[in-house]
Nucleic acid binder design. Sequence first.
DNA 1: AGCATTTCTTACCATACATCAATGCACCGG
DNA 2: CCGGTGCATTGATGTATGGTAAGAAATGCT
Lengths: 197, 197
Amino acid sequence: MLSFNNFKIYLNDKAGLTDDELMQLPYIPKSKQFKKGESLIYKGQVCKDIFFVEKGLIRQFTIDEQGKEHIIHFAPESWIVSDRSSSYFNQSGEYFIDAIEDSEVIVMDEIFINKASEISKTYRENNHRALHNHVRHLQKRINLLLSGTAETRYLEFLKLYPNLSLRVPQWMIASYLGITPESLSRVRKELTKKSFK
Amino acid sequence: MLSFNNFKIYLNDKAGLTDDELMQLPYIPKSKQFKKGESLIYKGQVCKDIFFVEKGLIRQFTIDEQGKEHIIHFAPESWIVSDRSSSYFNQSGEYFIDAIEDSEVIVMDEIFINKASEISKTYRENNHRALHNHVRHLQKRINLLLSGTAETRYLEFLKLYPNLSLRVPQWMIASYLGITPESLSRVRKELTKKSFK
DNA sequence: AGCATTTCTTACCATACATCAATGCACCGG
DNA sequence: CCGGTGCATTGATGTATGGTAAGAAATGCT
């Protein structure tokens, strides 16, 4: 197994697959490189692969009728992205996924996932747990969108992704928060003002 | 097994547990009755049970610092509610859950879930699939909150829960949509105007 | 039935955020 | 070094939604 460090850690620690079990899997991880701005998948495409982000930064987003982008979530190193409609429900995907930075992504195909679930109870359980965690996360975000002002939402974003705020251009953060770049700029201005008092 | 019709259907069809397998489970479903307005769980409580709504209508919501309620989701007949932070992560719950109508709820405890996952592959798979579907649903909602106007969101709500719009008081729908009851009232007025043209 | 309480509607004004447009700044390739 | 391109900032103005308050309608309670 090559030098995919984050992926290795993921398989051992988070997924809970022993080296023994890995050997049983008819699976050689394929990595793909994406330059900044390149797309992994487009809306409408069917794609049953699940992507593990070994290096870089990926985003999943939609484009509305007016051509505006809305970011569903960011996936930095060691995160997983996929379009569930496509990968689990055999429908065409609903989202765009592309690279914010030059990235290296490891492709986990359907066979790998299924086989791993079959042979390892730990993998299954951890996978299940991760999904629950994801749900929790999404619920929190919904709550924030329902209750927070632009400022609160921005502050929460900073708490949640402390290291991302410098890697992601501001207009994307705005798109994640559901406000315009101009508004975010003004929010930031207010915040620096406040912090001087 | 008493007369929990919806629950029975759920177990057989959606969960995929055969009668045989059910017999193996050391489980007698307990049902609980809740009057309109009664709480199933409060924020801060630890509760490892998962609730199946046999009859009635349940809501999961938060209350922010200003005392405003924000509805995370509605659970009518045959839906499942739980607070995942609590049930899967041993933390105190983050949400309130109460009954919108007089309801009958069936309690699936930890033991049941674990045991069922253990003995039935179908149960596991369906459960997993349902979770993915839930994620998909939440993502869609986030997208809607990011991109839609009050009117679009309301129309989407009507599409998603066609039978709920009459059962749920308007101020709760507003709270689900992230707007005030007054705004929803205005939106509805505009819509009836439009439909006359 | 009759009174009280809650929910819905409407009107008027306030505000947060969007939109549009101009400018400044940094990065990049030639 | 220069002009181009994309991003962030700022100001002026617009608009959707919020807040408040009052009355109408619906619902619940005894």
